[in-house]
Write a protein that binds this DNA or RNA. Structure first.
Lengths: 347, 347
DNA sequence: CAAGTTTAGACAAACGTTTGTCTAATTGTC
DNA sequence: GACAATTAGACAAACGTTTGTCTAAACTTG
C-alpha cells in the first residue's frame, strides 16, 4: 500500500505523474491541474485533497525535464567564468549562487580560461541542457553571434543588445584610491595596469588617469607597471616592482591592480628592504577575503563582489519574468583603510 | 534556402531533429540513426553525408533534455558542497570541474551551508533537473534515505552502500606534521581540534592522537584548542590562542586545524608579542593558495585538493559507465616546509 | 420534465528524442 | 522469371509533462 504503483524491484523509478494518476484512478491531466493550481478547472476540494496527499505520500517531484519540453522554465541557469578557485570569481559566484538557490534556481558552473572557442560554444551546450538564462562573469562574449538565451554580464567587456552589464563605478573607485593617497601626502605614485584580458583593465586605467589629472598627480612611464601573466599568484607583480626599485626614480606609494598583486608588491618591497607602510604605501583593489589577514593588512578599494553577483542574478530572473531591465547597473566601491598605507614620511 | 524549415520570425527556435528531417525529406528516425552512428541500420553513404552536412549547416545540437526522457544520460552532474568562496572547497571543486568539463560533462554547483534539510532535498531536485550523478564535498549525507543517483564523496562523513569516498590519508598527515615538529625539537605542542561539523575533524584528531602517543608527545587539555564557529575567517582561532597564552603553560608550537586558523594563530601570537617562528612555530593544514604568500609563509600539510576533486569526478564517471569502483580511495598528503616553523629555541 | 448550465474529469496532441517493428523497392540466386 | 534476401527508410510508441477540446452526468431553472 505504501509503495508507488507499478514500481519495479530493480529500477526504483521515480514516481511520475502517470503513476500517480494510475494510483488515484484519475487521468494525468487532472492530477497536473491540481498540483499546478491551474485556474479555470473545476475539481472539487475532496479530489484535490486526495491528489495532494498522494503526491506527498510518494514524494512526487515533477520532472523539470519534461516540463521544459512544453516550453516551460527549467529553473536553471548557466554561469560562465574564466576560472574557479580564485578569490575574485569565487566571491562573485557566491553572490550569484546565493540569490539563485534562494529563488529555487539551480546553476551550472562553467569555466573557460579565456579560451575563445569555449566561450562561444558553451552557451549552446548549456541551452541543450535546458538552462533558462546565462550569467557571464569577466567573460568576453563575441559580438557577432547573437546569444541564444537571456544574459547578464558582470564586469562585461562588450555591449550587446538586450544584455545587462553589472559594473563597478570605476570613476569613484579611482577617486577613493587616489584621494586617499593624496591626503596622506603621496605625490610620487607608481601605477599598475591590469592584464589585457581582464575586463576591468581598460576602464579602470582610464578612470585612474582621469582622476590623476584632476588631482595633478603626475604619471610617469617609469613608474607604471604592466601586468601580463595569466596567473592567480601574487608573483605576477614581482618583476614590475623589481624594475621600479632598480629604476631609482623615487616613489612613495604603489596603486595596485588588485589585492593579489598588492600582496606580491609587499613581498617584493620587503625583500628589497623597503618597509610597508613606513617607506612605501601599498593600496590594493577588490578586498578579497585574505586582504584582511595579510601582514600588513591591506588598505584596499572594496568591490562589493557578492553584491554584484546577487544583482546580476536578480536581473537575470527579471529578464526571465519578461520584466524590463536596464542596460547598465553600476555598483559603488568603498575605501577600506587598513595597515598597508600611511602618511608619507617627512624628509 | 539557408534557413531551417518552418522557422518563425520571432521565436528563433533551435533546429530540432524533426525540422532537420523535414528539410531533408527524411524521417526523424533516419536522421537520428545517422547522427548517432547507430549500428545495424542500412543507410547508404550518400544519404549519411547529406544528413551530416545539413546538421552542420543548421548547427544542430540534440536536446539532451529530450534524450534523458529516453533514459539516456544528460551528461551533467550535481556537486554538493557547504560553501562557495572558501579556499578549501574552491580548490576541490576546481578539480572536479576540470575533469568533468574535459569529459564533456556539465555540473550544477549547490551549496547548503551544512543545513540538514537542504542536504536531504537537493539530490531529488537535482535529479528532477536531469543530472546523472552527484559529487558531495565535505557533506553529511543522511544514511537512512537511499541516494537517488550514483554518488561519490570527497572527505565524506559516512559510509554508504555503493558510494565511493575519496579521503586524505590522515595517519600519514599526522605523522608528517608531528614528526616535523618533533625533529625541530618541539615537545610542548598545542593541538587544535576542528569544528564538529567538519568532516575531517574526527579522523584527523584520532590520527593525531595516535601519532602523538607513538612519539611520546604529551597532549594536555590546557594545550588543546577546540574550534566552534562556522566561519571562514582566521578569527576562529583567536579565542583559543588567547586562552593558551593566558594559561601560562609553556608551548613551543601550535598544530593548527587548517591554514585559515593558522593565520589567525599567527596574528593572535603576534599581538601578544610572541614571534613566529622564533618563539613559537605554527603549522598549518591544507596548503590553500594564500598559505604561500602569508607573512610568514606557512609550513603546512598539503592536501592535494584539486587532485581529490579530479579523482572523485573520474570515479563518478566510471560509475556512470557501470564500471566497478572501490569504496575508498586514499590520497597522500605532503609536508610543505616554509617560514612559520623553526627549530625550538635553546634556553 | 425539458432545456440549458455547471461540474468533474477524460482524451489527445504536443514538446524532441530513441528505438523496435514494419514495408516497399531493389538486388541476387537458381 | 519466381522466390528469397537485402536495402533504405517509414511508422509508431514511449519518455513525463502541459493544455486545449470534448463529454457524460448532475444540477438548475422555468
Amino acid at each position: 500500500m505504501t509503495k508507488p504503483p507499478s514500481s519495479s524491484l530493480h529500477a526504483p523509478r521515480r514516481t511520475s505523474l502517470k503513476m500517480l494518476a494510475e494510483y488515484l484512478g484519475l487521468s494525468p491531466s487532472t492530477v497536473s491541474f491540481v498540483l499546478n493550481d491551474v485556474p479555470g478547472r473545476s475539481i472539487p476540494e475532496s479530489t484535490r485533497k486526495r491528489i495532494k496527499e498522494a503526491a506527498a505520500k510518494f514524494n512526487y517531484q515533477p520532472s523539470m525535464i519534461a516540463r521544459t519540453l512544453q516550453g516551460k522554465r527549467m529553473q536553471a541557469v548557466g554561469v560562465l567564468l574564466p576560472e574557479l578557485g580564485d578569490g575574485y570569481h569565487a566571491q562573485v559566484i557566491s553572490g550569484v549562487g546565493d540569490l539563485l538557490m534562494h529563488e529555487g534556481f539551480f546553476y551550472f558552473t562553467v569555466h573557460h580560461r579565456h579560451k575563445k572557442d569555449l566561450v562561444s560554444t558553451y552557451p549552446e551546450l548549456l541551452r541543450s541542457r535546458g538552462v533558462d538564462g546565462i550569467v557571464a562573469i569577466d567573460t568576453h562574449l563575441s559580438e557577432d553571434k547573437p546569444l541564444p538565451l537571456p544574459t547578464v554580464l558582470v564586469a562585461g567587456h562588450t555591449e550587446l543588445p538586450d544584455v545587462t552589464n553589472v559594473v563597478l563605478n570605476h570613476k569613484l573607485a579611482a577617486e577613493l584610491a587616489l584621494r586617499h593617497l593624496y591626503e596622506l601626502g603621496h605625490r610620487r605614485i607608481a601605477f599598475m595596469q591590469g592584464q589585457p584580458f581582464s575586463s576591468d583593465t581598460d576602464n579602470r586605467w582610464a578612470a585612474t588617469m582621469e582622476v590623476a589629472r584632476e588631482l595633478g598627480i603626475p604619471v610617469h612611464d617609469e613608474l607604471t607597471i604592466h601586468l601580463h601573466k595569466d596567473s592567480l599568484s601574487p608573483e605576477i607583480s614581482y618583476p614590475g616592482i623589481r624594475r621600479l626599485i632598480s629604476n631609482k626614480r623615487r616613489f612613495t606609494a604603489v596603486l595596485c591592480f588588485n589585492d593579489i598583486s598588492a600582496m606580491g608588491s609587499v613581498r617584493a618591497l620587503h625583500e628589497a628592504g623597503i618597509r610597508v607602510p613606513e617607506d612605501v604605501s601599498v593600496l590594493g583593489f577588490d578586498d578579497i577575503q585574505s586582504a584582511q589577514f595579510h601582514v600588513p593588512s591591506l588598505t584596499t578599494i572594496r568591490q562589493p563582489l557578492q553584491k554584484m553577483g546577487r544583482t546580476a542574478a536578480r536581473i537575470l530572473l527579471k529578464k526571465l519574468a519578461n520584466e524590463t531591465t536596464p542596460d547598465l547597473v553600476q555598483v559603488e566601491p568603498e575605501l577600506i583603510v587598513r595597515e598597508s598605507t600611511a602618511r608619507v614620511a617627512k624628509r
